[in-house]
């Protein structure tokens, strides 16, 4: 299967938030009641029922002001920490590269939310005492994409800031766009996500440094995320297996020596001189 990528050209985004609504509509996610806090950004953060939203940022460089808009959502890392820590298989890496999510399989442990280098998954706590919860995040419209359609947000984007397709084609497009932007007076234009964390399947064309958009400049895979399944689990199996073997050997040795022991009880006179392990 070919590798897919969703390319977000932030320089074309008009912040209409059509993608936000298309996402809610397709996935039947409820609206959130919000209050005006002096910004167009609404809602102010991702939520368990808001998987994607437009963020607004002000940036000044070289005497030039930019109002930056960005579609903030799951970046679908190729080296996805959330997939590595998920104990139930609710999060999986699709063969085409995106990170799928099965809500039914999620047991609410929140390991993914804690391991994500971008802080994307949101936990919907159903009962804090019993720990009942569900994670949620963008799943790249897994139902649409695996049936040959584009994600709902891409389908709806009026200025064509969102594009979806084969990864190498998207990378070529992104690089071309960066050159165009540079020629048009955006010297800081760049591609974000070509190599970060093995390649992000939501890749950005930016006109300012990543940090100006609220993205980490160099996202890092959390060390502890790989420790669990790669080190601790195998270590536990090996240690347990060795213990079983050790105890079994001890049992065999004990059974043999117990006979000697009973004999020595019958004739207790001389202490056996320090005779070491019987072979």
């Amino acid at each position: 299967m070919s590798q897919i990528t969703l390319l977000v050209d932030a320089s074309k985004c008009t912040a209409c938030r059509g993608c936000q609504i298309a996402c809610k509509q397709w996935w039947d996610l409820s609206a959130t009641k919000t209050t005006q806090t002096g910004t167009y950004e609404n809602p102010r953060d991702l939520e368990s029922n808001t998987w994607s939203r437009i963020t607004f940022h002000e940036y000044e460089s070289g005497g030039k002001f930019q109002w930056l808009f960005l579609q903030s959502s799951c970046l679908h890392c190729t080296n996805a920490a959330c997939v590595d820590v998920c104990p139930t298989g609710a999060l999986k890496q699709n063969a085409t590269g995106f990170v799928s999510f099965e809500r039914d399989l999620c047991n609410g442990c929140a390991y993914c939310a804690e391991a994500c280098p971008f802080g994307i998954p949101r936990m919907e706590t159903i009962n804090a005492l019993t720990g009942e919860a569900k994670a949620s995040k963008c799943n790249m419209c897994q139902d649409r994409v695996t049936n040959g359609m584009t994600p709902a947000c891409v389908k709806t984007c009026p200025p064509g800031a969102l594009q979806f397709g084969e990864r190498t084609a998207m990378i070529t497009k992104a690089k071309e766009r960066v050159e165009t932007l540079k020629a048009r007076g955006y010297p800081e234009a760049r591609v974000y996500g070509e190599n970060e964390l093995g390649g992000l399947r939501r890749m950005y064309v930016l006109t300012a440094p990543a940090s100006a958009y609220g993205l980490p400049d160099s996202p890092q895979y959390p060390v502890l995320a790989s420790a669990w399944q790669n080190v601790i689990q195998p270590f536990g199996y090996v240690a347990t297996a060795l213990a079983v073997v050790g105890l079994a050997l001890n049992w065999v040795a004990t059974r043999r020596s117990r006979l000697n022991h009973v004999e020595s009880l019958a004739a207790p006179a001389p202490e056996a001189p320090a005779e070491k392990e019987e072979v």
Partner: peptide, 24 residues
């Protein structure tokens, strides 16, 4: 149990690891 979302992510992940090592 209770720190989900409110403790630093590294502390949470460390807790998972330490919990597992204690199990072993």
């Amino acid at each position: 149990w209770f720190g989900r979302g409110s403790v630093p992510p590294d502390l949470f992940l460390l807790s998972v690891v330490v919990h597992d090592l204690s199990v072993i």
